Amino acid sequence: MDTTVDWSNLPVELWPLIGDKLKIWIEFLRFRSVCHSWRSCLPRFNPSILPKFPFPYSDGPNAFVSENTVYLLRNPSTSSPSPSSRGWLVKVEESDKLRLRNPITSRRIRYANDSSFLEAFNLLDFNMTELSKSYVLRYIHGSGSVCGLNKVIIVPPDFNDCAIIVICDKGMLSFAKNGDQKLTLISHGGFVCDDIIVYKGQPYVVDSLGSVFRIDSSFKVVELLCKLVGLGGRRKHLVESCGELYVVDRYFEQEPNKQEDSGVDFPLSFLVFGLRGRRERFESRDPKAVEFKVYKLDLLDEEGGRWIEVKSLGDQAFFLAMDCSFSVLAQEVAGCKGNCIYFTDQNDLNLALREVTRPESSVFNLEDHSIQRLGSSQIFCPLASGD
């Protein structure tokens, strides 16, 4: 029995009603790709501005959240992965317009018109799987991303109608609700936050010593009672893979000073140093990674658990991007190797988004502990070769 449906024959009056319900760019573009009639009934994608938030050194909600999504894009014509049928990674930023970015470094991939480029894909010919979401704050007036922030997450809907939690410079943890005039510091005993992630509907934070904390719905910090052994690196990353929570411990060739490695101290630094000076200052002191260790957090309950060191990731590969971390099944991505960690040594997302620096990507092999430059790779969208 033929179950194929000719969607182009739906009643004309239903087209705009369906289109009005589409809020995600990929759904919008798939709708427009059905036929000329469907495309003509909707304008080009113009994502709405998300709620407004404050940022450090400001009074009033002067920023909005810009969303980034990493997708696995692949041809659905083959049922099983093979070297010729593997997909590739693409990262899309949705703000005032659509932008393509490098999935690891977040550096802009430029075309004459990003939106036109994206719509040139017939998305019905591809499967697009969402791998990860990340967020940055952008100025409402002017351009560019907000300085002074190391990480931004949107809290789960069960916590608040609309709120963000941010890791500021120096590893301070703060939150803000839509329309707040200032960020509110989250009291946490003075530890230095390295990373934050939403795992199983709750925010989790890891500090510079490897202790993991859960943030409850009242924005209170609850430390998990885990026995920490061997976490000697100086930067921690939280990664979710196959439903499990991991901490990746990064070791540097030289021990960074946490007080100096966390970014600008005050916004006037842009005036004092200028973008060129700030770029040279960061590039000259970014420590190089020489080793990684991986630990899986075995949560016994909401208040406690234990660490298990992981010697091999199997066919999984971890990506430590500037604004988020995620994992993929290596055999599904062209040029990707399992049991490896893909990363960048640059740690200032603001500079990458402003295109002040040209961060590079590297890959660490967990089997032989080697590190190699990634260079030009099949991992990323082949039509998006810029970096």
Rank of each mutant, 00 (worst) to 15 (best):
G233W: 03
D345F: 00
S312G: 07
S218I: 07
P157K: 13
A352G: 03
E255Y: 15
F273I: 00
V222S: 11
I196N: 03
D125K: 13
D6T: 06
K296W: 06
L149P: 03
R101V: 05
K21F: 12
L185C: 10
L100E: 00
R235V: 10
P287L: 09
G144F: 03
D158S: 15
G263L: 06
L228D: 10
I18R: 10
S58L: 05
L349C: 08
C336H: 05
M322T: 01
G335K: 02
L320T: 11
D315Q: 14
Y246W: 07
I197S: 01
K21D: 13
E283L: 05
E253R: 14
I164F: 03
G338D: 01
N122H: 12
G60W: 09
G274C: 03
L149K: 10
F126W: 05
F292N: 06
S77Q: 14
A334V: 02
V166I: 12
Y251I: 09
K21H: 14
S174Q: 12
S262I: 04
S269F: 10
D249S: 08
N339Q: 05
F159H: 11
T129I: 06
L50V: 07
V294K: 04
S284M: 12
L275T: 10
H36M: 10
A176M: 07
L10R: 09
V90N: 04
D298T: 12
L329V: 13
F319G: 01
V363M: 03
Q378H: 07
D261E: 13
R32Q: 12
D169F: 12
L228T: 06
T105R: 03
V310M: 14
D2A: 08
Y135G: 07
K296G: 06
R279K: 13
C193D: 04
F175V: 13
V221E: 04
V152D: 10
E291C: 12
V294D: 02
L383P: 01
R39T: 05
R30M: 10
S37Y: 09
A317K: 02
K170H: 14
D301Q: 06
G148D: 03
L231D: 06
P382K: 06
K170R: 15
I154C: 15
E302V: 03
E260C: 13
G210T: 06
P267K: 09
P203M: 07
G304C: 15
V310E: 10
L297V: 14
F45D: 08
K258Y: 11
G19R: 07
L131C: 00
S48L: 15
G277M: 02
G171W: 03
N62I: 01
V248E: 02
F219K: 04
R99H: 09
R138C: 12
R306Y: 06
G144C: 04
Q259C: 12
N102D: 02
S115N: 13
D368E: 11
L137Y: 07
L366E: 01
K182H: 12
Y295F: 15
S40H: 12
A384M: 02
L275Q: 09
E280R: 11
D261V: 05
G60R: 07
D194Q: 04
K296T: 07
S385I: 02
S8F: 03
Y139S: 10
L300W: 11
